[in-house]
Design a protein around this nucleic acid. Structure first.
Length: 559
RNA sequence: UACCCCGUGGUGUAAUUGGCAACACAACUGGUUUUGGUCCAGUCAUUCCAGGUUCGAGUCCUGGCGGGGUAACCA
């Protein structure tokens, strides 16, 4: 694992530090990550995971994994396995502390009964729309003053399944005139005659999130319950529940949800992308899901680094996508082996190199890390270079190959373009060069003339073929959800480009699924799971920074 | 509309709690380089506005303005 900078001291860490210092909760810290198993985890969850686990680690505490499974109609075990897998992949471990809100259903029910006994909850029999209207009008329900006995009886019969869904509901009895909507007698138990993945058919009433969540934290002894901003208005309600039942009081602290430009993190919208076939699945390398990022070639360390870098605040901002891209570049620059690959091949023939001969050249695996050693690279008379690296009519500032110019072939020789071969359409199909044997790479001796460009190449007879998938942003604008009726209008039609017949140096033939490599001068790539024996598929994780592309684009814009 | 939260470079965050506004990314200059990569150096802000307290305010107070969240028998 690459070393990661110590996390920045955000407002949550500062607050926890002072709590710990003050000896609150005996100086102990305990957090939790509480996903609802109703979808795959995405980059936003990654930050919440990173926050909770790294804070726990930093303060010598623990972090639980708890599935918030209070709504069986929307949840599925499929997601439980995926969520576990993603968190582990990110590099975190919850040991045996895997919990479920449903583990506490019995306790929640007992709490509800206690509230009723205290006269702090009642069964309402108004239809849903009426309850909503009454809450807005700050008007008491006609059922608000039912006796404790009647409420107890109705609640018990709700539990037994005597009523249809929607006919009755248990509400907390707080204050219908409260300026905080959440305190206007919120629902705490509703009838749902649905099978639950973990509790089976034991229950036909299920607690609301607002009722269950704070108590789950309390039961597990969570000292600091970190959640996103939209729950800020709910905190007084959680505190009220905790006070009424006189149980352990976790401290909730809210922070802003992570937003990244060009990415969407709404579960509903991600689901639509999958269901309507705009992407190949939850793990499509263009998806902002953990699985998508993973398949794309992002490393756990780079994602953690990104989360830390984006920072934790209460301000709703948008982190630029390049910050994420830079995080993976930084990690892979240090760790990924360099390899030669030509994506759009152009044949290059060295006319003065003996036919049928070849040699093995030394190539460094990673100039950033000498311990990664070197390898032998086969060289011969016929090579492939990148089509982009040759211009018959070079623009100003182009210092790659063109008629009459000389460049270095990485780890090999200088070559000079002498001739161009074209097909019937006038397209260049081959460049013919001469090489200078005295310019062999690594050779000691006389100072050489300088060339400006160095090209990557692959020996034609030794090349391994592969498919390479180039990804661009799934959306063509930084904020895909604003200014349009349907975010799909902003889908980028060119977000995937598939290249076949790419030429790789032979060493790459043995690459394994998931392996990260840098294709020299091009970018970071990784082996996709679609690879078969003899039919490799690579995903481009991210390109290298490309200052020439920038210059060219600027020239284009000038006209 | 009501309630709650938040305003620091182009972007994301800092600022020892009242003491020279710092870091990263982007952009632009230049240097090194057998990856137009990496690396190195430099340039880029009167802290939303107006008052007030103070020797001193990004920080405290008052009033504006602006942005966001919530108003489910979802989480």
């Amino acid at each position: 694992m690459t070393p990661e900078a110590a996390p920045k001291k955000d407002f949550i860490r500062s607050r926890i530090a002072s709590d710990v210092e003050a000896g609150k909760n005996g100086g102990k810290l305990h957090t939790r990550f509480p996903p609802e198993p109703n979808g795959y985890l995405h980059i936003g969850h990654a930050q919440a995971i990173w926050l909770n686990f790294s804070v726990a680690e930093e303060f010598g505490g623990k972090c639980n994994l708890r599935f918030d499974d209070t709504n069986p109609g929307k949840e599925d075990v499929e997601y439980v396995d995926a969520i576990r897998d993603d968190i582990r992949w990110l590099g975190y471990d919850w040991d045996d502390r895997e919990f479920y809100a449903s583990d506490y259903f019995r306790t929640f029910y007992d709490f509800a009964v206690k509230l009723v006994r205290k006269g702090k909850a009642y069964v309402d029999s108004l239809p849903a729309e009426e309850i909503s209207a009454y809450r807005e009008a700050q008007k008491d329900s006609p059922y608000r003053e039912r006796s404790v006995e009647e409420n107890l009886d109705l609640l018990e019969r709700m539990r037994k399944g005597e009523f249809d869904e929607g006919t009755h509901i248990l509400r907390a009895k707080i204050d219908m005139r409260s300026p905080n909507l959440n305190l206007r007698d919120p629902a705490i138990y509703r009838i749902r005659k649905i099978h639950h993945d973990r509790t089976g058919d034991e229950w036909c009433i299920y607690p609301m999130y607002d009722f269950a969540h704070g108590f789950s934290d309390s039961i597990e002894g969570i000292t600091h319950s970190l959640c996103t901003l939209e729950f800020e208005n709910h905190r007084p309600l959680y505190d009220w529940f905790i006070e009424q039942l006189e149980v352990f009081h976790p401290q909730q602290i809210e922070f802003a949800r992570l937003n990244v430009s060009f990415l969407i993190t709404s579960k509903r919208k991600l689901l639509r992308l999958v269901q309507e076939g705009h992407v190949s699945g939850w793990d499509d390398p263009r998806m902002p899901t953990i699985r998508g990022l993973r398949r794309r070639g992002y490393t756990p360390a780079s994602i953690r680094d990104f989360c830390s870098n984006a920072g934790i605040t209460k301000v709703n901002g948008v982190t630029q996508l390049v910050v994420l891209e830079n995080a993976v570049r930084k990690d892979l620059n240090a760790t990924a082996p360099r390899m030669m690959a030509v994506l759009e091949p152009l044949k290059l023939v060295i006319t003065n190199y003996p036919e049928g001969e070849g040699e093995l050249l030394d190539a460094v695996n990673n100039p950033e890390d000498p311990s990664m050693g070197s390898r032998k690279l086969p060289f011969s008379r016929e090579l492939y270079i990148e089509r982009d690296d040759f211009r018959e009519d070079p623009p100003k500032g182009f210092f790659r190959l063109s008629p009459g110019t000389e460049v270095r072939l990485r780890y090999a020789y200088y070559v000079k373009c002498e001739e161009v071969v074209k097909d019937a359409n006038g397209e260049v199909v081959e460049v013919r060069c001469t090489y200078d044997p005295a310019t062999k790479s690594g050779q000691e001796g006389a100072p050489l003339r300088k060339v400006k460009g160095t090209l990557h190449w692959v020996s034609a007879p030794h090349a391994v073929e592969a498919e390479v998938r180039l990804y661009d942003n799934l959306f063509r604008v930084p904020a895909p959800e604003v200014g349009v009726e349907d975010f799909l209008e902003n889908l980028n039609p060119d977000s995937l480009r598939v290249l076949t017949g790419c030429k790789l140096e032979p060493e790459l033939g043995a690459a394994e699924v998931g392996q990260n490599v840098q294709f020299e001068r091009l970018g970071y790539f990784c082996v996709d799971q679609d690879s078969q024996d003899g039919a490799l598929v690579f995903n481009r994780t991210v390109s290298l920074r490309d200052s020439w592309a920038k210059v060219e684009k600027a020239a284009e814009n000038r006209g």
